[in-house]
Design a protein around this nucleic acid. Structure first.
Lengths: 342, 342
DNA sequence: CGCGGAAAGTGGAACGTTCCAACGCTACTG
DNA sequence: CAGTAGCGTTGGAACGTTCCACTTTCCGCG
């Protein structure tokens, strides 16, 4: 129960020194004598003293905290990016404040504003649904790194992402190489990342001479989204032999939909995802995917952020990391009977 | 870039009023005249004023923030509990500060201490690996609700959990009812929850007259943990016909291991998980599981917390929610040939 | 033996809020 | 027309730190 917590004054009184010396001692300053230090530490321990971060950050004008906004904690992909962020942030001696907006722009904005009120020294946004104007305004107040997208630019906005267009091409090329022709794309909806992946799909289909076969079905970046999009895809005549889903989660949904029709993956339909979440490596799922170096992206983002905190006027940086196709068990050549004269 | 942010004084000067009035206006007090209010709001907007949460919480002696510690963000189960927490916290007008300790006791403790320094008004701990002594000490400073466990008690510690022993019994009874006899348990290791589930398993095996068949293999509450435990289980002679995994994630790992041996689930081996994460409902996985009402547990925890914040001396409460067996595609009767004379 | 300088310790002024007691008005009441 | 009630507004004192400029103490050295 939180009866009036002891403050630095209480510790000072008990140790018989001034509050200033307590402040020094608590932060491990070398200009405190051994004697005083142990006196103070003992007093603090006895009282159960705990520094007040609010007071500290007020006086110090620094919070030693960075804010992180993630799109959605249900998708393990973000946990993996977060791992990279967190470990880097910790080595810099900072804390992170983590919030989610659940893919809702208004909520996301509200959460970001809250972070700013807490005086975070920097912001990492791991995927988002925010309008560029909001992001740019926020970047005026605080260094900002956006992971996953680089469509919003500004003098103090750094970005870390893979090339989604190129990645999507890899997926399609993989399927084409296996002999697929009727390849549909289960899109992730109306957000930048999904748009890029769709564009990559369309482009690759064109390049492969399959422009006429192109077919995009709208879904969402969730298992449910993939499921319902795949259902529609399976109603097409003739039935597609392969699906490229906008991300791994929706690919899982798609696989479920295929199986619910009594069809097999990859026997009847091949499925490719995107992201490279570690769950997909499990044999049960064995999901062929376009893998991004998730942890690395997080770490990179954090490093960019600290770089900018240290050098506020550095030119903004757009980092690109490489995605790679990881072939696994959810893709295979199409059945003979499905094989159109190619 | 963050050149000296405008403060309440700057707004006051620009609007031609006192700082006190600005403070009132920013918080929407009714005792501010329409005229002043709009003057102040305009000035604030022009300057891009944003209240400083540190200063506010210092002056106010309340942070309007609760801290949440989650065991592990990689397991979507926790995201589902978190949903319940967040929505409840929001309706109370509070913010949440979210941290993880990655199942590392030292890290968990460090993160909790940090939350306390931020003067959170309450703490929700969603699964943890902390010694009781730490938790009790922390509960002295701040209301605390522990979700998932209730082994640590104290005058201001509330708990929300399901009965893991009973839940584990459900899992075993389900398998027994299907006709299984050689049922192994893939344990989740040395933590309270896993111990309870193991105890429930042992108890139910005894009740079913299968004490002699009991077999616990040590794993961990992750996909990797389930995978390796299942590998060992599959080496047993005679091979078990069913596995009860300590949680859903490890059940997925177990299924993968079975399939990697060229065996089928549920054809050769049935697998039951525990938790009821929504991912398990996907046809691809179709995981039979003991489902906890995850979101509800989160919401319940948050409500307990606010109740205690409002009434600090209320007796501590231990809530139990019911888990239910959800039969899905990962369990089936054992093969004839595997069927020992029962 | 006095002096300089380092080491150890101090009190007061910030930091940006909120709260509180008190203020000047205006408008009503008797 | 004095008294009072309320409204809108105000300055100053907190809140718990850190920082700074300063003091005291002590030591070695010329």
């Amino acid at each position: 129960m939180s009866e009036a917590r002891p403050t630095i004054h209480d510790v000072a009184a008990r140790a018989g020194v001034s509050k200033s010396l307590v402040s020094l001692a608590m932060r491990g300053s070398p200009k405190v004598s051994e004697r005083s230090r142990s006196l103070i530490l003992a007093a603090a321990a006895e009282l159960g003293y705990r520094p007040n971060a609010a007071a500290r950050s007020l006086a110090d004008r620094r919070s030693h905290t960075v804010g992180v906004l993630v799109l959605d904690l249900h998708n393990p992909v973000f946990a993996e990016i977060l791992d990279g962020v967190q470990s880097e942030v910790r080595t810099h001696g900072y804390s992170t404040m983590l919030v989610t907006g659940g893919a809702d722009p208004d909520l996301e904005q509200a959460e970001l504003e809250k972070l700013l009120e807490f005086q975070v020294e920097g912001l990492i946004v791991i995927a988002h649904r925010l309008p560029g104007s909001v992001l740019r305004r926020i970047a005026k107040e605080c260094p900002l790194v956006v992971v996953t997208r680089d469509d919003v630019t500004g003098p103090s906005i750094d970005t870390v992402r893979n090339d989604d267009v190129a990645g999507a091409r890899l997926a399609v090329e993989h399927l084409v190489a296996l002999g697929h022709r009727r390849i549909v794309h289960l899109s992730g909806g109306d957000n930048r990342v999904s748009q890029d992946r769709r564009d990559g799909y369309l482009e690759a289909m064109r390049t492969a001479g399959l422009a006429g076969q192109s077919c995009v079905i709208d879904g969402a970046l969730t298992d449910a989204g993939g499921y319902s999009a795949a259902q529609q895809a399976l109603d097409l005549e003739p039935r597609p032999t392969a699906m490229f889903a906008a991300n791994d989660m929706s690919a899982l949904g798609a696989i479920a939909a295929v199986q619910d029709r009594g069809l097999g993956v990859p026997g009847d339909v091949s499925v490719v995802g995107y992201d490279g979440m570690s769950l997909g490596a499990l044999r049960t799922l064995s999901l062929t995917t376009v893998a991004q170096p998730l942890g690395e992206m997080g770490a990179l983002a954090a490093r960019r952020l600290f770089d900018r905190i240290d050098h506020p006027r550095r030119r903004s940086v757009r980092l690109r990391v490489d995605a790679a196709l990881v072939p696994r068990g959810s893709t295979a050549p199409p059945r003979r009977s499905d094989h159109p004269r190619g």
